[in-house]
Design a protein around this nucleic acid. Sequence first.
DNA 1: GGATAATCGAGACGGTACGTCAAGTCTTCTT
DNA 2: AAGAAGACTTGACGTACCGTCTCGATTATCC
Lengths: 226, 226, 226, 226
Amino acid sequence: MAQNVVAQNNAGSAAPRTGSSGTNKKKETCVKRSPGRPRSEESRLSILRSTIKMLKEDGGFSELSIEAIAADANVAKTTVYRWWPTKAALVADAFSHSAADELRFPDTGSVVSDMGLQMRRLIQILRSKRGRVVSALLAGGQSDPELLKAFRDRFLWPRRQHAYQTLQRGIDRGELPAGINLDFILDSLYGPIYLRFIIRHDKLEDRLADEICALVLKGLKNPPQS
Amino acid sequence: MAQNVVAQNNAGSAAPRTGSSGTNKKKETCVKRSPGRPRSEESRLSILRSTIKMLKEDGGFSELSIEAIAADANVAKTTVYRWWPTKAALVADAFSHSAADELRFPDTGSVVSDMGLQMRRLIQILRSKRGRVVSALLAGGQSDPELLKAFRDRFLWPRRQHAYQTLQRGIDRGELPAGINLDFILDSLYGPIYLRFIIRHDKLEDRLADEICALVLKGLKNPPQS
Amino acid sequence: MAQNVVAQNNAGSAAPRTGSSGTNKKKETCVKRSPGRPRSEESRLSILRSTIKMLKEDGGFSELSIEAIAADANVAKTTVYRWWPTKAALVADAFSHSAADELRFPDTGSVVSDMGLQMRRLIQILRSKRGRVVSALLAGGQSDPELLKAFRDRFLWPRRQHAYQTLQRGIDRGELPAGINLDFILDSLYGPIYLRFIIRHDKLEDRLADEICALVLKGLKNPPQS
Amino acid sequence: MAQNVVAQNNAGSAAPRTGSSGTNKKKETCVKRSPGRPRSEESRLSILRSTIKMLKEDGGFSELSIEAIAADANVAKTTVYRWWPTKAALVADAFSHSAADELRFPDTGSVVSDMGLQMRRLIQILRSKRGRVVSALLAGGQSDPELLKAFRDRFLWPRRQHAYQTLQRGIDRGELPAGINLDFILDSLYGPIYLRFIIRHDKLEDRLADEICALVLKGLKNPPQS
DNA sequence: GGATAATCGAGACGGTACGTCAAGTCTTCTT
DNA sequence: AAGAAGACTTGACGTACCGTCTCGATTATCC
């Protein structure tokens, strides 16, 4: 049923734009364009924008209706269905489209500081309207593996790649012991944040980032002497 | 009309109809029974059972339909609506009804061991079919605060109460330093578990419990000497 | 299913009142009263009153709900069902209970005048709120023969009996020819009134009565000479 | 959203798709067809047919359920609701759709004969299964002015137009006096028929038509000499 | 005076149909 | 061909009454 959610649906974007120098009289498009009316970039963006907008405003994933998106985007319902096989695919696409790269990892020369800063930033994002989108994505993902995969592929893994580097720098600098399981460390660092984000049983404050770093990274630094 | 989602709907549990102990002459019935046909306990249980059953089987919270529950429970749809104002209320009730007390905290004389055993058990439950119910609850809760509150009130807090005691025993025994924020510790312990459960990016194995305990609790034991 | 709608449901009314001479010491009730709590006359009247009230106010027969009647009459729904097998039976009963004897036939010494006056009165009633009850009765009767029968037995026939007498007086006085079909005459007289009442295509005014009388009765008076 | 009950829903009747006659180069289509999938004529007819069918079979107007109609017509319930705002509108439409022109007024050269024949035909129709439809329409109309209006607009008035002509011919021929109120005459003629049809207190036979004509029209012919 | 019996209130029960919403598909005209 | 428009089937929604049922409380007669 679900087609590749991860694939770039925005095909066709590639390059009829690069006019390509030349002296051809007629259509000098290098790239073979299929006949017929080309996909409307305007519609595509409008749909993605509306999706994000409604996720931020209203409710969760299941409250989101394609009907409403199409209406808000001033687009026919069929246009949505033509390009995204499921609501999950659309939301995943919209999410990745909106995912600004605000979560860069800094390099201050200290693992604790680097991780702390980035985690702080994540907390801020989760608390913002963008957090609603993440929330919807995770909620929807609980009954749609594809959606969850999209979250991982477009949000989790790219950031983990940077996190690995940050941690590795710490190891190289001797701040962290070698031979540790990086994924496990990262789960320990981010777990508490997501826990409070999901269950909402306690405040999700900036300094939580520091407290976790203090506990986890310094716990690593000083191996048990017992 | 609106019903307290948290309140126990199973009133009339202890019906002392055959009271009569004592020497009173007339009516000694302590509990005044309201007039009218009494609620069918059979229906109530059947509905709760079917709810859990369908959550375990099919999909998530939004895939669950009251229509289907009523059909499966051999009960009129109106009977469901008479007692539970929303699907969320029903699922919350069903969840708490099914939440057996399999998650008791042991008392082995060691914090690390106590917590580890309990976390192990949680992991097993999350991996089992019951995990689907938790998953649905958390997913649904992302767009329904009441549902999330129900999860906390009926699942999280009761268990935290025991956890506090377990940790306190550790402090009393000198295994943990005094003056620590218990909730923060618990979030650190359970965060990674729930993270893997929700995002499903890594295996959720039993030994994860021990690894977290080792990192977090032993990190506490040995305060940084720097 | 339907029990005799026409039968007096208010059995038991018969005569414990006629004390019957005698010298009995105790309870000299001649009529054996069955044991058990007697029917509440208050409830019965309240139900009938509410039924009429709602028919006058709201909509037609099918808009009338037993639920609403019971609520309005401050009576349990079961009490209604105990005494009237169907809504039709109840409405029929209520109608006959409310049917005041305002439609007496006068005796002025002239058929035309007698009939005219009575028809005038009928028109006034149909135009009043009571007309809504008649309308509901006829509407309901179209899919419930029992209800229609009730209308005839309790409204139509009693009045026709008097009409026969009025017409006969006219015949005796020589105002009308002998040997005419009285029912046909009455249908001719009342038909136009009911037609306008039912189809509401034209005004239902008092003078319609006179016009019909003029046409029909005078038409009878002067037999075609052709 | 609300739909004119009286309006012809069967738009698009004359679709000149294959226009092209003439010398125009391009599109000569006179009637602009709106975009989108066109309404299914098949569904429309099926619904109307089923409506009539069920009215003939089962019970009255209130016993008729849109659910059942949709099922019988093999059509989704929403399709019914899309085109007819209320059950009344649907029934009115169905009625007018089924109302064949079997009630033409003849022109035999005699008013009495013309009217008698037509009234005879009406009686036959009312006695037939089609009578149940009329009955349902009038019953429903008692609590729904729109439905009653539909009956008048689609059944009563069209026929009255012809009746006026028939009567006028009689006047022109000297069979009837000039200056009479045609509507009053028609109410007098049809009133008794509908009275017996609605109240069902007496037989509705063919010869009733002649008897009424004899009474009413001949009564007119010979003005009272008193 | 206690058993018996029928009523009444209250209200839960299994149903049926309601009228609405959104889903996803299909058909048509327009660009 | 894509897009806009909009009709289509499907299925669940939450509500209103239906007519039935099971209660406790009441009110009578009968033994």
